[in-house]
Design a protein around this nucleic acid. Structure first.
Length: 103
DNA sequence: TGTATGACCCCAA
DNA sequence: GTTGGGGCCATAC
């Protein structure tokens, strides 16, 4: 029940990420008020339909890297979308300056 | 009911 | 700078 609320919060937060910016699973978890739910955020994203309008590609891990292995289709898709939005990669990582929310 | 797994994170060495 | 281990909690089997 409360997890339904969490899902909505997660969707709202992701939808509010500005174009050309990214954020991390941990940040999203914290903004929902549950600092330890970073893993749950990933689980939620995995369940999204492939035709979702949610900008899931703007969500990366705490290291500034894409959460998928580099040789996967999902990785390439995500990276391509980010680069289309003007986000540049440095050695496979996104610079901190591109993060939407920072503590 | 119990164990394993995952689009993660943090801290100590 | 890297590496390893613990923690987290919903799902799947």
């Amino acid at each position: 029940m409360s997890d339904l609320n969490i899902n909505e919060m997660i969707w709202q937060i992701i939808a509010s990420i500005p174009e050309g910016k990214v954020t991390t699973y941990g940040q999203i978890a914290r903004l929902t008020g549950y600092p330890n739910r970073a893993r749950y955020v990933g689980s939620t994203l995995k369940k999204l339909p492939k035709d979702t309008s949610l900008p899931w590609h703007r969500v990366i891990n705490g290291q500034g890297e894409i959460a998928f292995p580099p040789d996967t289709k999902a990785y390439k898709t995500q990276r391509y979308r980010l680069e289309e939005e003007g986000i540049l990669f440095r050695k496979g990582k996104v610079p901190l300056s591109e993060f939407g929310w920072q503590d």
